[in-house]
Each structure stands twice: as structure tokens, then as C-alpha cells.
Simulated assay, not measured.
Amino acid sequence: MTRRTRRLGVCVLATVALTASGAAAAQAATVITMSGSTSVAPLAALLAKQYVKTHKNVKFKLAQGGSDVGVADVAAGRVTIGNSSRDPKATDPGGIFFNKVAKDAICIVTNSKNTVGDLSQQTIQGIFSGKIASWSDVPGASASGPINLVVRTAASGTQDAFQKIFMGDAKVASSASQKASNGLVQQSVQSDPNAVGYVSLDFINGTHVASYKGVACNLRNAKSGEYGGVRNFWMVTRGRATGATSSFISWVQNSSAAQKIVGLHWVPLK
């Protein structure tokens, strides 16, 4: 499997429609619609593609937009599943249910020409709050000049998790360039020698990945629990899932086939 699914555009519809042949079968198929997290989207696409191989009467439609969009969409009944890479909030709409499906590492990334070594939480907070504004003030940085911050928008689950895990009470500088997807952060960091951002582990290709508190951000360390920047992936439903949606989520959570897919780039539940 490759990283091709990460390029799904924000709010661009992608359809997995491997159903039984014939017009009658297509009409009878159950359609599970999903929107939300750009971090969860690559995993959701892989899972859906595998699921339809053995469930010919189901097809999927997948859109993105950010975790908050997915939560709002499912609460309003616009989609069957809202994909979220952030934990439940007290401000979330009532009547929705968070189904945990995997875990994921958030990595701090710089341009490949700026091989920053280990970053402490204090240094990360200083950089992203704007208190540390020059790479000359960052130990181990090979770049010089101003630090260009690349972050996610407020609707992002990755932003929410980054704030909780890395920033605590410190606030991200208002001067930071906000991007609507992991892929856009990745591209910005790849093209700017002075940039720094944070992305889901599946989006580190072409960047330099800094270690955090002495631990490298990689799949092995995320699975072992050594890496501290790990968050949950959720599939959110309107109430507890029923019917075909319940069967799909149960398959994701419990089947060895699904958890094997999760284990490719993410942290399985089991």
C-alpha cells in the first residue's frame, strides 16, 4: 500500500464503489457517507476499499473538511459517519457517539534542509507561540533566519490535539499561516526552508521529522507508547451506530483484516 490516499482534496468527494454488478444491485446498495478529518481520511479510504471486497451491498462516499466539520455533519444528519482526529468536547452537539478506531502520532516537521534534532515541549511552545522567532535560537537547527509557522485551522482535530499535547496553556501565534489539511501543511514545509509545522504521521514524507522529548516520531515508538504525541482517531455516529454502519465500525474495531490495515501507518486498538 502506498500513501496515495493522502492527496484527497479538502471537501472533494471521493467514492469507493466496488459493489455487485448490475443496475439492480447498485440501486439496492447501502451508501455510507463520511466527512471530516483529513488525518483520518487516508485510513478511512483504505478501510472502505477493503470492506467492499467482502460486502458487495455496501459502498462509501468520503469527503474531508476537518474534524469539526465531520462532527457537525453527522450531528445534523448530513453524513452517516463523521471522522474525527480529536477527542469529544463538552461543546459538541448532543446525541452523537464517538467510536474509537485507531490512534495516530502527530509529528513536528521542518524542511528537509533544516535538520532540527530533539525538541523539548518548552522549545515547541516557544516556537509556536512566537516567543522564539529565529532558527538561530533553536538548538540543533541547521537553518537561520525567521521561523515561518505553519499550523492547522480551528476546525482541525490535529490542531486541537496539538494544542492539548504540545502547547498546553500556551497559544499559537496569530501570525502563523493556517492550512486546511495535513497535505497543505506538508507541502508548505517541503517548499519553505524556514518553515515548521505539525502533521499526522502519514504525512511526513519529504520533510524532516524532529524528535520530541528524546523520542523519534515514528510508528514503532507510537505503537510502543514511548512517543508522547499520540492522539485518538474516531468515527462519530448520530447515536449508537445501527445496521450497515454498525457492522462496518464493528469490523474496523474488531477484525484482524481491518487492524492490519490500521497497523500500516497508524496504531491499532489491539
Rank of each mutant, 00 (worst) to 15 (best):
G94E: 12
K131S: 09
N254Q: 15
A75S: 14
A17M: 13
V58M: 05
S85N: 04
L18P: 00
G65V: 07
L13P: 03
Q125H: 12
K49N: 11
P146Q: 13
G130Y: 07
I124M: 12
G70S: 11
N114Y: 00
G229T: 08
V172F: 10
G229S: 12
G228D: 01
I127P: 06
K164C: 05
T5H: 15
V116M: 06
Q253S: 12
A72D: 14
Y51T: 06
A105H: 01
T110F: 00
G239M: 11
I132M: 08
S191R: 13
V215A: 03
I165C: 09
V150I: 11
M1I: 10
G168F: 13
D192L: 12
A48P: 06
V40R: 02
V31S: 14
S136M: 07
E226M: 13
N99A: 02
P88R: 14
A23M: 11
K49L: 10
A161V: 04
A17Y: 08
V262H: 03
A17H: 13
N83Q: 13
G140A: 11
G206S: 08
V185S: 02
V189F: 09
S188Q: 02
S174Q: 14
V230D: 01
T207H: 06
T123E: 14
S174M: 11
I32Y: 06
T115D: 03
S35H: 12
K53A: 12
V185D: 00
T91M: 09
D87A: 15
G70Q: 08
Y212K: 05
T158S: 10
A102P: 04
S174C: 07
P42D: 04
S112V: 10
K61G: 01
S156P: 02
K223T: 09
S191A: 13
V262Q: 02
L13C: 05
S39V: 09
G228L: 10
N232V: 07
V215F: 10
V101G: 00
K59E: 01
M167L: 12
T153E: 15
R3W: 05
T2W: 11
S39Y: 03
V58N: 01
N221E: 06
Q27S: 11
K213A: 15
A176I: 11
G263K: 06
A90N: 04
R3Y: 08
V69L: 05
D104C: 12
S120E: 09
T5C: 13
D169R: 14
A257E: 14
S174E: 13
A143L: 06
V138Q: 08
A29N: 08
G214S: 14
A154R: 14
V71Y: 02
S85L: 04
L149D: 01
T207N: 12
Q186Y: 00
A25G: 09
K61C: 01
W234F: 15
Q163K: 10
K223L: 08
I96C: 04
L62C: 07
G206N: 07
V31Y: 07
V74S: 02
G65M: 07
A63F: 03
K260S: 08
V267Y: 01
A25D: 09
G66I: 02
A29R: 13
S37V: 10
Y51N: 03
T110G: 05
L47D: 00
N148E: 12
G130Q: 09
V151S: 02
G157V: 05
V116R: 01
G214C: 13
A180C: 11
Y227C: 07
G183M: 04
A176W: 14
I147T: 01
H55N: 15
A195G: 03
W234Y: 15
A241R: 03
Q27P: 05
L13Y: 06
F166E: 04
